[in-house]
Amino acid sequence: MEHHSILRVVSKLLIPPILLYALYVQFHGEYGPGGGFQAGVIFAVAFILYALVFGVEAMTDILPPRLLRFLAALGVLIFAGTGVVTMLLGDAYLGYNALAANPVHAQEWGIIVVEIGVGTTVAAVMMAIFVAFASHNPPIKDEDW
């Protein structure tokens, strides 16, 4: 891919804003359209773009498949763990009211934590699936298309 200089320059310019936008969607999801599902997908897209232009090896150097599998499980753990924490604090499973003194603030906290769990799992799952497909066999060369 050495000759695709336009692709390389443009994707280098695009990837940081995509990551920033994913974080915006994640943490602004309570106020506008967005949330963990969308943010996770956008976050994964930034890394997939990087892998498409610079090669899957370059991406797995930053995010090894082991780490992706760990993150996918971690997201589910954050979500399910929040439920356990609220149960230990004396409320129902995923009843966020117990998380803070003010129930409205507690609800907001609960939603933010849970959305982070969703975002982590979705991003890690999408990247893990992409890496599984992309590194399954030697990818075909540009000339073959």
Partner: peptide
């Protein structure tokens, strides 16, 4: 009144129907 965030979709997704969403995340996983 209860959650204090403007996006009703996020409120229903993560709070009122949190069980559903937990199930969906496990399916994705």
């Amino acid at each position: 009144v209860e959650i204090g965030i403007p996006n009703t979709v996020a409120a229903v997704l993560a709070s009122y129907r949190g069980f559903d969403t937990l199930g969906e995340v496990v399916v994705v996983f």
